[in-house]
Design a protein around this nucleic acid. Structure first.
Length: 368
RNA sequence: GUCUGGAUAGUGUAGUGGUUAGCAUCUAAGACUGUGGAUCUUAGGGCCUGGGUUCAAAUCCCGGUCUAGACC
């Protein structure tokens, strides 16, 4: 259940608490992506030490491997991986964008190809609820029909209607009282479709409402508008989850619009590619200019990496392709996201979110 | 010292007379947002040296230099 504790007076930002079977999560929050039962280049122990209260895994991929039998034997995914805080599970809807996964889609559900052995699997909304029930995640997501930004308006109309229909079917077949269920708003970047879909999803008694189908190639301007169109029709007291978005500037802007929850591969993927987040903007650690810079990645950062290592050392590890480079940069970026969002919560409590947002965006330069 | 082989981007290599000299890596710039872990895009950079043959040489011939191995 979701409870708002404080609203910022000038913006729509708010801070609250999302209660789950495995603990409470303070909003707004960002969660890392743990697709197949592990974060890339980061352990659960480190996620715990970085104060992450939840992450998101992929129900479809867990269904394929290790499979539901294994998860039943361990009485759920939490025990299998030994993580006792909250877990979200994503539907696999995002994989609809990947032609190597998607075989076909119709009103009944989705046919996926297994990336492990090529086997065909049919997933209906009801089947997905069963899968997520067996996984035992704290927050399940409905099956949605996600389209790329270049599809036609008519295709978006069909996908939106299908998403609404599937949302109802997911809601009706969801029986696990210990598990929250979030609906998902689609509709591309079209105002009428976003409004319509959000209104319909909002009407179903979901525990939270997600905004999906964004940050997949559309312009920033269109993305922000689509967020606004969606939020217009979502009750204020519902927790709002912006799926897939996780660049620092998008998070700061979206919190100001009233988003409570984010997930994204962006911070960890950037880390693996040598891009380090700082309050002054991202820096490309692989550049020669950092070769002899014997200071931490970011002044004032209290993460393990900044307390122990210099830019020069991390630059060296990255250049010689030592896996530790990816591990350490991942830790820093995940610590950065926590620091950023923690700061955002404080500013909301102080009714100072607008000036915080403005000054962050002014200082967060696109390139180092 | 003798014999044989080899010399093509920074590195490793493909290339039997006509190629914009290919590939990998590298360097530089950009990209990346509900994860196919090592990704993608663009750019940069080379025929050891001197002669000769030929319309045309990285390619064939001769000398030099460097280098690898074998033998004295």
């Amino acid at each position: 259940m979701f409870k708002i504790n404080k609203k910022d007076e000038k913006t729509k930002a708010r801070t609250g608490t999302l209660s789950t079977t495995h603990g409470k999560i303070t909003t707004p929050f960002y969660m890392p992506v743990v697709t197949k039962g592990a974060g890339k280049y980061v352990t659960f122990k480190d996620l715990d030490k970085l104060d992450y209260e939840c992450f998101i895994s992929n129900a479809y991929l867990l269904y394929l491997k290790p499979g539901l039998e294994t998860l039943k034997e361990t009485k759920g995914y939490h025990n299998f991986i030994n993580w006792q805080k909250a877990i979200f599970t994503d539907s696999g809807g995002f994989q609809l964008l990947d032609p190597t996964f998607l075989l076909s889609i119709n009103d009944k559900g989705v046919s996926f190809r297994s990336p492990f052995n090529g086997d065909k699997h049919f997933i209906s909304p009801e089947k997905l609820m069963e899968i997520q029930n067996t996984i035992g995640s704290d927050i399940a997501m409905v099956l949605d029909h996600l389209l790329g930004p270049n599809e036609t308006y008519q295709a978006h109309v069909e996908a939106t209607n299908r998403t609404i229909d599937w949302a109802k079917r997911c809601y009706d077949s969801h029986k696990n009282k210990k598990q929250l269920l979030f609906g998902i708003v689609q509709g591309g970047t079209y105002k009428d479709l976003r409004n319509f879909c959000a209104k319909k999803i909002n009407k179903i008694n979901f525990d939270g409402v997600a905004i999906g189908g964004l940050a997949i190639g559309e312009s920033k301007e269109n993305m922000y508008m689509a967020i606004d169109y969606s939020l217009e029709e979502i009750d204020e007291n519902k927790v709002r989850y912006l799926m897939g978005v996780g660049s620092p500037e998008d998070v700061v802007i979206s919190i100001g619009k009233g988003i409570d929850c984010f997930d994204s591969i962006f911070p960890t993927k950037m880390a693996r590619h040598g891009v380090v987040f700082t309050m002054n903007g991202p820096l490309k650690l692989g550049k020669q200019k950092y070769r002899d810079v014997h200071v931490p990645l970011e002044k004032g950062c209290d993460c393990y990496v900044c307390k122990n290592h210099s830019k020069a050392y991390l630059h060296h590890l990255f250049r010689v392709k030592e896996p530790n480079a990816k591990i350490l940069l991942t830790i820093h970026n995940l610590a950065f996201m926590q620091r950023l969002i923690k700061k955002a919560r404080e500013e909301i409590i102080n009714n100072n979110y607008e000036s915080f947002k403005d000054s962050f965006l002014e200082n967060y330069k696109p390139l180092d």
